[in-house]
Amino acid sequence: MITRKDLTHIGWLSRLELSEKDIEKYTPKLNSVLDYFTELDDVDTEGVPPTYHVLPLSNVFREDEVSAQGGSLTQEEALSNAPKTQDGFFKAPRMM
């Protein structure tokens, strides 16, 4: 069961501002989904390894070579979608 307090904490971890109304609205819905997830408790997974990757790939690398076309962006391209910039920097809010 997810409590309102849990939800506040998860909202913080997810950086999603949740109003009292949101918490009211989400709590039962999230709980119904979590409740559905408990179905997995019935499965015996003793000794079963997790599948992180569905294909047995390993050791995929790139060489230490500067990528040609399609690699680096110009500063202008890099900043082209930024809502706020200053002197070639992205501009973020104050830290504290």
Binding site: G11, W12, R15, L16, E17, N81, A82, P83, K84, F90, A92, P93, R94, M95, M96
Partner: peptide, 16 residues
């Protein structure tokens, strides 16, 4: 870097 931006306050609040 891209996308929607709301009014700035401290960064935690702004992100949220």
């Amino acid at each position: 870097r891209y996308g929607l931006r709301t009014e700035d306050s401290d960064w935690h609040t702004t992100f949220s």
